[in-house]
Amino acid sequence: MSWIDRVRNAIPFVVKRETPENLWHKCPQCGAMTFLKEYEENQNVCPKCEHHGRIGAAKRFDTIFDSGVHTPLPAPAVREDPLKFRDTKTYAARLKAARTTSGEQDAFLNAKGEIEGRKAVVGVQDFAFMGGSMGLAVGAAFVAGVEAAIAEKAPYIVFTAAGGARMQEGILSLMQMPKTTVAIQKLHEAGLPYIVVMTDPTTGGVTASYAMLGDVQLAEPGALIGFAGQRVIEQTIREKLPEGFQRSEYLLDHGMLDMVVHRKDLRETLARLIAYLVPEKAAA
């Protein structure tokens, strides 16, 4: 045995510690680095610049309902891939990949519970599932949420986040616009409020339908809200658009929103709105 081997063997073996790759979160707005745990405990809001990051349905339910206690509502069954659509991949393959990544069946989920002691049915659109795109499953889930709210005699609160209609379902996805509009009318006929909270981003056919039909329109700070993209609009009208165009603060200043609410204040704000809009239910 050479002297090199003797020295190497004499050195005590130390197990190499693996450093988690996701230990930090970099804010896309200010670039600040924050411990991921701190970022998540702050409801995915940057502690430096208050940028509101996107969150999924499960976390939204946990933060909105009292103590996170809620009952998920089953997703309605719909026909999948009705057009047998294919681009670079089949639609069936894209659905399978999205379900594997998100753990959910589609982009819209409902749950019922209480918000500061007041009953509510909450629907959440998850941008992580194919950009929150609106298709048959989203339309059916929205209608199911309205029906659950009517059965519970509770308000229906929807958090929107979408890139628009789902192109793989063609005109069938556009049919969800009038379908959800009719469902909202049924909610009104039952004397129940419909509250919308728009999150980043809410665009396309979702904005052109149920996202803009709330009795009260709320949005999170800095949320992108619009129908067509800013570049498309500028190229069409051949004019430069104002700074902050299509952001929630700009829309609030121009009368398209009622409130812009920080995520930490949303639960309290929603509870207050329910008390105003359903006073007899709150008193009971």
Rank of each mutant, 00 (worst) to 15 (best):
residue 161 A to S: 10
residue 17 R to H: 10
residue 95 L to A: 06
residue 124 V to A: 06
residue 34 T to L: 05
residue 142 F to L: 13
residue 22 N to C: 09
residue 272 R to T: 12
residue 272 R to A: 09
residue 114 E to T: 14
residue 204 G to N: 02
residue 65 F to D: 03
residue 96 K to Q: 10
residue 120 A to C: 09
residue 258 D to A: 07
residue 143 V to L: 06
residue 147 E to A: 14
residue 264 K to D: 13
residue 52 H to Q: 15
residue 177 M to L: 08
residue 219 A to E: 01
residue 5 D to F: 15
residue 148 A to H: 05
residue 114 E to C: 01
residue 234 E to Y: 08
residue 57 A to W: 00
residue 57 A to M: 03
residue 189 E to S: 13
residue 195 I to N: 01
residue 194 Y to D: 04
residue 176 Q to K: 11
residue 81 D to P: 10
residue 236 T to C: 08
residue 87 D to M: 12
residue 10 A to G: 15
residue 86 R to N: 11
residue 203 T to A: 12
residue 255 G to C: 07
residue 122 V to D: 04
residue 268 E to V: 14
residue 93 A to I: 04
residue 225 I to E: 02
residue 205 G to T: 05
residue 194 Y to C: 03
residue 259 M to W: 07
residue 110 N to D: 06
residue 75 A to V: 08
residue 151 A to S: 09
residue 2 S to F: 02
residue 245 F to D: 08
residue 89 K to C: 10
residue 86 R to P: 01
residue 4 I to H: 12
residue 188 H to K: 11
residue 245 F to L: 03
residue 4 I to E: 14
residue 179 K to A: 15
residue 278 V to S: 05
residue 215 D to S: 06
residue 224 L to N: 03
residue 33 M to Y: 14
residue 254 H to F: 10
residue 187 L to W: 02
residue 173 S to G: 12
residue 43 Q to T: 05
residue 141 A to T: 14
residue 44 N to E: 13
